[in-house]
Design a protein around this nucleic acid. Sequence first.
DNA 1: GTTTTAATTGACTGTTCAGTCAACTTGCCT
DNA 2: AGGCAAGTTGACTGAACAGTCAATTAAAAC
Lengths: 200, 200
Amino acid sequence: MRRTSDAKEKLLQVGFDLIWSQSYGAVSVDQICEQAGVNKGSFYHYFPSKADLVVAAYEEDWREKQPELDRIFSPQVPPLERLERWCGYIQKRQKIRAEKYGSVCGCPYGSLGAELATQEEKIRAKIQELVERNQRYLTSAVADAQREGLIEVSDPRVMATQIYSTTLGFTLHAKIRNNLDLLHELEPAIMNLIGIRAAV
Amino acid sequence: MRRTSDAKEKLLQVGFDLIWSQSYGAVSVDQICEQAGVNKGSFYHYFPSKADLVVAAYEEDWREKQPELDRIFSPQVPPLERLERWCGYIQKRQKIRAEKYGSVCGCPYGSLGAELATQEEKIRAKIQELVERNQRYLTSAVADAQREGLIEVSDPRVMATQIYSTTLGFTLHAKIRNNLDLLHELEPAIMNLIGIRAAV
DNA sequence: GTTTTAATTGACTGTTCAGTCAACTTGCCT
DNA sequence: AGGCAAGTTGACTGAACAGTCAATTAAAAC
């Protein structure tokens, strides 16, 4: 058959899913192929290497989730509410995965980056790129909040980076504890960070 | 020779070092043995498995660095200064490693936890334990700051957890970017978190 | 209907891996 | 002195690994 199967899409989706819930090193190409119902030869027909698959798989995941992020960060939404929604989105995504796999999987970018940033430059660079795309949403929310006089920051981009770091840290910490409760603290922590004192 | 060699200590030190700078999956037992100048049989004489070695190696690293943490968090030091010193310590440690290995290695707990928390329960539990030990220092610093009226928080333990999450996030983000500059933002971020407004 | 070419197949390669083992060495105890 | 046990040696095993390849299939282009 020529271009009637969905082998490539299957490999991307299964690859992302397995590697996020386990790790790059723990998931073999054979395993991805088996779960995708695709022969190994086809894998290497589409992707020159395992590292290339994971890069493509993460890009594909971005493509799929971008519309939801666009909705969350719609300029129609008041800027601080965007941040609240973002925290809620992360909590929701983590909860769904934890229920599906029996353990907290953490942020897919954080997990892959932590494992491979010093090993596979191609992968590190892709993760960095995806992180930067996420930060762009945060930057515009922070800048809008600033413009509306809701907060006071010197540089929205720096603040967005700090917010993203905080998010990476909370999701990683939740993974280490294998407990999602910590994520309830994410929103207050971000509000403190941008200078909105929560009720004590 | 009976107990005259330092094979075990060598394995612990080399194991920690290699796994921190690369990853658990990327480092083989053979590689650890070779660099430690120890035969493979000796490795398995001391450690039942690779996972057991890494647990012991991380415990040994803790033992070695604990005195420095005791100094940083000495009750003799004003509580907020303890937090500043803690940030400085992390920056210093990351800088030394980045210079030695040519790339930012991130937090050893964060990296190992991100890679293996869903895979090796024994390792996840050890990382969690080590993280909790670190948090104890932070908790007492926060509680002391609270007692001295420097900050206002409802629960010092919750705040310490937030501070540690933030630290995990910044070090991981720096690893993903392969750039240490971000760590300059760690201290201001933590100060914001605990409610000490930095000059804008 | 023939050509072209993307897609598919699955067996194969050579390497690397964690872990095993039986023989051996050497310091310590009595 | 002689035996016990902690420590050492390095060859070995079997499985798993990423990646290869030549042969085959079938959609599409003409």
